[in-house]
């Protein structure tokens, strides 16, 4: 039986990994078509020469960076606030935001922003994308940081309080430092989720805030394009490195 299981495991692992491996290999193909002709970096050069792709990558990086910073801070504070005493309404609402289908979150934000624009002279753009990303990322941060908090000893803080620290000092000097690995892991995960998001982003983005997933989506709709293979392979490798790093931190 062990042999049968091993065989199935190999098949499933191949299924999970081969598509991305093949895509990466073919991003180095010198031919525009799917037949292998020879090694070439020309599609990577094409990415570097594509203004739209570079600009959207830059947009995606800014959005992910700002959204990650804000969501990590807000989520960490919230997780700490819910550590010793529960906040059932907030917790329930965060879980709700986690399981609501992305498309529903997207259209409801679109409806909300459009409604708001009747009263205020602002438009869809980077700021609406960032606000959306921060909102859906908070739940992820709270889950990761809360998991870290659960393993911690609350009596350390009490000791600090007994020794004359106020509540803020106890948080800032005692609890927060040992939360750092969890916070960094949460930030890395949030960054990848924000950087990757297409469904919600495409609904709340304006003309000046096209992100990289939106460009990739547009090109993928039109058909397979070796430039997309190259940018995709780059994303796979970079995100892979980030995730391995985040996993390491969480296991510490």
């Amino acid at each position: 039986m062990r042999r049968v299981l091993g065989l199935i495991a190999i098949v499933v692992y191949l299924f999970l990994h081969v598509p991305l491996l093949v895509l990466t290999v073919f991003s180095f193909n010198s031919s525009r078509f799917t037949a292998w002709e020879g090694f070439s970096l020309k599609w990577y050069a094409a990415v570097m020469a594509d203004h739209r792709m570079l600009e959207s990558t830059w947009n995606s990086l800014i959005i992910a960076f700002v959204a990650t910073s804000a969501a990590t801070a807000i989520g960490t504070l919230a997780a700490y606030g819910m550590w010793k005493r529960k906040a059932p309404v907030l917790e329930g609402s965060l879980y709700l935001s986690l399981v609501t289908p992305e498309i529903v979150t997207g259209v409801s934000l679109l409806a909300f922003f459009q409604w708001l624009f009747h009263y205020m002279h602002i438009r869809l753009g980077m700021h609406t994308v960032i606000l959306a990303h921060v909102t859906f990322s908070i739940a992820f941060v709270v889950i990761v940081v809360s998991a870290r908090l659960k393993t911690m000893d609350a009596t350390l803080e009490e000791a600090a309080l007994d020794l004359g620290a106020n509540h803020w000092q106890a948080f800032w000097r005692v609890t927060l430092p040992s939360l750092i690995p969890g916070i960094v892991a949460a930030a890395l995960l949030t960054f990848t989720i924000s950087f990757d998001d297409y469904v919600i982003t495409s609904l709340v983005a304006g003309v000046d805030s096209e992100t990289l997933p939106m460009v990739i989506y547009g090109m993928a709709r039109k058909g397979v394009n070796p430039t997309v293979n190259a940018i995709s392979a780059t994303i796979v490798v970079l995100i892979g490195v980030l995730i391995v790093f985040a996993e390491r931190l969480q296991q510490e």
Binding site: Y13, L16, H17, P19, L20, V22, L23, F26, F33, T34, A35, L189, T192, F195, D196, Y198, P213, I216, Y217, A220, G223, V224, V228, N229, S232, I235, V236, I239, G240, I243, V244, E247
Partner: peptide, 30 residues
Amino acid sequence: NLVMLPFWTSFLVRTYAWMFLLRDTGLINT
């Protein structure tokens, strides 16, 4: 971790990878 790793890479890119494999001029047909 081997199960989770592809899961964390871009959902869009992973979907695109299947387009690359399955299209009429995709890898499997070629």
